[in-house]
């Protein structure tokens, strides 16, 4: 009984470390394939379109609504202390430091990450990747690395767009609807948001999330069991693992960046 339990535990641990190992081998191959992607910018542009541009709509809409909610809630809290003038700062800092990188990464996992996993998983299931290998075309260079680089490039840009649109949302609600002074809204924001401390740290976060989210999506697709059930499980794992990884990493990064 106990032996069975121990055996099952050992098996789980082994399979965990095997997956971890395969994940890192995938990352290694992705990284060494990047130079060859740079030589074929057309492949990269196609992928930036499908990974980044097609994710734009959900980012714009979500950014706007998140910003509007922040404006509303921020106003309700600040007005009690007579500090509604600081609404611009509150909205901008919340968005740039935390919400934009994190929510963008979560949306990215749901929209682009799952699509990447499903696409690659299906290519594996239908032997397209294998077929490519037999045509002496390296799928790492032709299929996986362009998608990886596209994700890594797209994420910080999407995050910046999310932040900018979110600030507009906060502005519409705060200034447009609730009557916060427009000059105070912008000037406080300008005075209190620091380029390096706030904006760059947010960008660094979303770069890290870009690497992690795309890496997980590509690894899961490439490692999927080549059946329809396998692909569906891999897609689910992509979203779950990416979300957990992003939230966990965000805490660590926040502690490192803003901890003191």
């Amino acid at each position: 009984m106990i032996l069975d339990w121990l055996q099952a535990l050992g098996q789980r641990a082994l399979s965990f470390f095997q997956r971890l190992g395969r994940g890192h081998i995938t990352l290694y191959y992705l990284l060494i394939a990047i130079p060859s992607v740079l030589l074929r910018p057309r492949l990269l542009l196609q992928q930036i379109y499908s990974v980044g541009v097609l994710t734009l709509l959900i980012i714009l809409v979500s950014g706007l609504f998140v910003g509007m909610v922040l404006g509303l809630q921020g106003y309700n809290t600040l007005v009690r202390f007579g500090a509604e003038q600081s609404l611009g700062t509150a909205v901008a800092l919340t968005l740039l430091r935390e919400m934009a990188p994190v929510v963008t990464a979560l949306l990215f996992a749901g929209r682009a990450g799952s699509a990447l996993t499903a696409e690659i998983g299906l290519m594996k299931t239908t032997e397209q990747l294998s077929g490519m290998e037999m045509m002496a075309v390296d799928p790492n260079k032709r299929i996986l690395a362009p998608r990886f680089l596209a994700g890594v490039i797209s994420m910080p840009l999407l995050s910046l767009i999310f932040g900018a649109v979110g600030i507009m949302g906060g502005y519409i609600v705060g200034v447009g609807l609730l009557g916060v002074d427009e000059g105070a809204f912008w000037s406080q924001m300008q005075a209190n948001v620091d380029m390096r401390e706030d904006i760059w740290n947010g960008i660094i976060k979303s770069m890290v999330f870009g690497v992690v989210a795309t890496w997980i999506a590509i690894y899961e697709g490439n490692d999927a069991t080549p059946t329809s059930e396998g692909v569906s499980r891999a897609t689910t794992r992509t979203v779950v693992h990416t979300s957990l990884a992003v939230l966990g990493l965000n805490f660590i990064l926040t502690a490192l960046m803003f901890g003191d």
Binding site: E127, Q128, S130, G131, M132, M134, M135, A136, D138
Partner: peptide
């Protein structure tokens, strides 16, 4: 190996066409 593969073709059962 990739050089060698250029000189062999494999026809998969499914065709393995790029969809």
């Amino acid at each position: 190996l990739y050089q060698l593969r250029k000189r062999m073709g494999l026809l998969f059962q499914s065709g393995a066409l790029l969809t």
